[in-house]
C-alpha cells in the first residue's frame, strides 16, 4: 500500500466537499428543520387552545341546556296547574249551575204542588158545601147560615 500524491488529491476533494456542505447543504436544511419545529410547536399550542375553547364551550352549552330544561319544566308545571285550576273552576261552576237548576226545578215543583193542593182544597170545599146543600136543601139559607158556612169553609181551606 503506497502513500502517494493520491493523498493530496483526496485531501483537496475532501476539503472542497466539506466546504460545499458547509455553504450550501447544511444551513438551508437546518433552517428548514428549525422553521418546521417552530411551526409544529405553534400548531400544538393552537391545538391546545382549541381544545380548551371547546371544553369551555361545552361547559357553557351544558349550563345553558340545563337552564332551558329547568325553564321548560317550570312552564309545563305552570300549564299543568293552570289546567287543573281551570278544570276545578269549571267543575265548581257546573256544580253550582246544576244545584241552581235543581233548586229552581224544586221550587217550581213545590209551587205547582201548592197550587194543586189549593185547587184540590177549593174543589173539596165546594164539593162538601154542595153535598151539604143537597142534604140540607131547603133548610139551608144562605143568609141564615152564612156564619156556619164561612166557618166550615175556613176549616176545610
Amino acid at each position: 500500500m503506497s502513500i502517494n500524491a493520491t493523498l493530496l488529491g483526496q485531501m483537496i476533494t475532501f476539503a472542497l466537499l466539506v466546504l460545499f456542505t458547509m455553504k450550501y447543504v447544511w444551513p438551508p436544511l437546518m433552517q428548514a428543520l428549525e422553521e418546521r419545529k417552530k411551526k409544529i410547536a405553534e400548531g400544538l399550542a393552537a391545538a391546545d387552545k382549541g381544545k380548551q375553547d371547546l371544553e369551555n364551550a361545552e361547559k357553557r352549552a351544558k349550563v345553558l341546556l340545563k337552564e332551558a330544561k329547568d325553564q321548560a319544566a317550570e312552564i309545563v308545571n305552570l300549564a299543568q296547574k293552570r289546567a287543573n285550576d281551570l278544570v276545578d273552576e269549571s267543575k265548581d261552576a257546573a256544580k253550582q249551575e246544576g244545584e241552581r237548576i235543581v233548586a229552581a226545578a224544586k221550587a217550581e215543583t213545590d209551587r205547582e204542588v201548592q197550587a194543586a193542593k189549593e185547587g184540590l182544597r177549593k174543589q173539596v170545599s165546594t164539593l162538601a158545601i154542595a153535598a151539604a146543600e143537597q142534604i140540607l136543601k131547603t133548610e139551608v139559607d144562605q143568609n141564615k147560615h152564612k156564619e156556619v158556612l164561612k166557618d166550615l169553609k175556613k176549616q176545610l181551606g
Binding site: 447543504v25 436544511l29 433552517q31
Partner: peptide, 30 residues
Amino acid sequence: TLHLDTLFFSVVLGAVFLVLFMKAAEKATS
C-alpha cells in the same frame, strides 16, 4: 503516482452526495 480509480470514484461519489443534498437543500421548506 496518482490512483486514478480512487480519485475518480471518490470525486463522483462526492458529487453524488453534493448534488443530492444541494437539491434537497434548495427546495427545503418548513
